[in-house]
Amino acid sequence: MMREAPPIRDRMLAAALTVLTTEGQAAVTARRLAAEAGVSTMAVYTHFGGMDGVWQEVLAEGCRRLVAGFDEVGVSADPVADVAAFGAVYVRAGLTDPELYRAMFADPRLSEITDVLADEALDRLVGAVGRCVGVRLDDLDEPAVTGVAYQFWILWHGAVSLALVGLLKPRQVRRTVTEGMIGLCTGHGDSPDRAARSVRRGLRGLADLA
């Protein structure tokens, strides 16, 4: 029995993600997506309203993948290790698919779209940091918890961004993220030894970076 072909919209979105990953943003054009999906360029406007709509969906898919990775971490008895595991997911996503990462977080033309779409991922991180408060980290109010979550995100983003322009090697990314997270945790009330154990445990997903 022949399998039914995916809908045109799905084929075009899959093509956009594939072309972006393999060839970069400049290759993602209406003409190229139409050719990959076997349709006319009018389909871009029919199904997405134009290339802005395509990018909206591409970035949404990137954010969905990030949220799914965070959700796979789950909740353990060590909340600091859980936050570190979020960091491993984030860094791995950036290094594994750098073109998608750049589109999501490094292109000012697209950053306004990502700012809205990434809220769900940030909410997950704020929740994970919140589970550390009063247990391992200082007792903080809600705005302060969000601020700490941003500090972790900025650390991860900085490390990935430096790696993508060749200023950090993979092993340096791992060391930078490890030391930075230990410093942030101890700065917010955790003991250095305990923070180091938890952070290293949570970042085991980056152990192969060499």
Score class of each variant (00 low, 15 high):
A103F: 01
M104F: 08
M104V: 12
F105E: 04
F105Q: 05
A106H: 08
A106T: 11
D107E: 11
R109C: 14
L110P: 09
S111M: 13
E112N: 13
I113A: 12
T114F: 04
T114W: 01
D115R: 15
D115N: 13
L117S: 06
A118N: 12
E120M: 00
A121W: 02
A121M: 06
L122N: 10
D123Y: 07
D123A: 15
L125T: 08
L125G: 08
G127Y: 10
V133L: 07
G134Q: 00
V135R: 12
R136M: 09
L137S: 02
D139R: 14
L140G: 02
G147L: 04
V148Y: 00
V148D: 04
A149E: 02
Y150E: 11
F152Q: 09
W153L: 14
I154A: 15
I154N: 09
W156V: 03
W156E: 06
H157C: 10
H157K: 13
G158S: 07
A159P: 01
S161Y: 12
S161N: 15
L162M: 14
A163E: 02
A163H: 08
L164V: 04
L164I: 00
G166W: 06
L167S: 11
L168V: 05
R171G: 05
Q172E: 11
Q172Y: 07
V173C: 01
V173Q: 01
V173G: 03
T178A: 13
T178S: 13
E179K: 07
